[in-house]
């Protein structure tokens, strides 16, 4: 059963489609059949051209202000469910962001169809199947969607590389599903950004992450200093995020961000699988840990058994001396 139509839910960030939306469109193009996008944002029409360039031939655009002011889960699932009824897609790809997970869960319940989460790859030769990782990405499971359609896949960021397909302007189809009163019960009153200066964690060529081994929140300052010298970004393990040392936006791992920098430097991080799932795709990994048996060394291209609080400042000195 080949795929006739794949949909991608595209989120909008700062007036542009989210990177993961472009990754998903790139993948959708390879599945055969039509590639179409759904955008629910007051800025939906502005991003349609880019979505077209990455492969969407049709963009369903919902521009209700409510998509920005309310939580997207309820209104998003309603809008997509009504489109599904009219257009019967076989597969819906949704990025595993916060809003993405909310929409996917509600949509699956609404349509009574399965959703597979933590997806790393999808295939559609014969059956529609998804590869996902379980147990902290130590094992890869291939799951086939049975006959119920659409199949919904919640895909992790950076599972595919985004490549423009050179497509032209898509047909923009307005979505005119009214937002149900019931969804107005929860609204966003303020959006607070606590991301640090410098390059974004997901885009930086060097990511320097700290864990509980740094001993004290103030020691993150040395990671910040190193990051600013090499134009990198600072990440963290969940242990220190939960402890309130650093904001959640810095968390790398299963419940945090997925990063694939050229170099990832783990300082005082043990290497629990829930952390490594978010960074093991890095091209090179350096680990600094006191404990020679720390699991992080199993992934490291360069492992230093030592005190991060000594080694990192020495690296900073070396770099400064080098000019």
């Amino acid at each position: 059963m080949p795929v006739n139509k794949t949909w991608v839910l595209a989120e909008v960030l700062h007036g542009k489609p989210s990177t993961i939306a472009l990754e998903l469109l790139t993948k959708a193009r390879t599945l055969g059949g039509a590639t179409e996008a759904i955008v629910l944002s007051p800025e939906a029409e502005q991003v349609a051209a880019t979505l077209g360039e990455y492969g969407a031939t049709t963009v369903f655009a919902g521009t209700d202000q409510g998509y920005a002011d309310l939580l997207l889960g309820g209104p998003g699932a309603d809008a997509i469910a009504s489109l599904v009824e009219q257009h019967s897609p076989d597969l819906i790809l949704i990025g595993s962001s916060y809003a993405g997970r909310d929409v996917a869960g509600r949509l699956a319940a609404k349509l009574d169809v399965p959703v597979i989460a933590n997806v790393l790859d999808v295939g559609a030769d014969g059956d529609i199947a998804a590869e996902s990782s379980i147990f902290g990405a130590t094992q890869v499971v291939r799951t086939k969607f049975e006959s119920k359609r659409p199949a919904i896949a919640l895909v992790r960021a950076k599972s595919f590389a985004a490549e423009s397909g050179g497509g032209g302007a898509p047909t923009v189809v307005p979505i005119d599903v009214a937002i149900a009163e019931a969804h107005r019960g929860a609204r966003v009153t303020e959006r607070v950004a606590d991301e640090a200066a410098g390059p974004k964690l997901e885009e930086a060529p060097i990511v320097i992450s700290g864990g509980r081994g740094l001993g004290d929140p103030k020691n993150f300052a040395i990671l910040e200093e190193l990051a600013s010298l090499v134009k990198g970004a600072v990440g963290a393990s969940r242990a220190v995020v939960d402890a309130g040392w650093v904001p959640y936006a810095m968390q790398v791992g299963q419940t945090g961000k997925t990063v694939k920098p050229t170099v990832y430097i783990a300082c005082g991080i043990s290497g629990a699988m829930q952390h490594t799932v978010g960074m093991k795709g890095s091209k090179n990994i350096i680990a600094i840990n006191k404990d020679a048996d720390a699991p992080i060394f199993k992934l490291a291209d360069l492992g230093v058994v030592g005190d991060a609080l000594k080694v990192v400042p020495q690296v900073i000195e070396e770099l400064k001396a080098r000019g």
Partner: peptide, 9 residues
């Protein structure tokens, strides 16, 4: 959120 947090009522 990916970049910080939202206040939601």
């Amino acid at each position: 959120t990916e970049t910080g947090y939202d206040r939601v009522e």
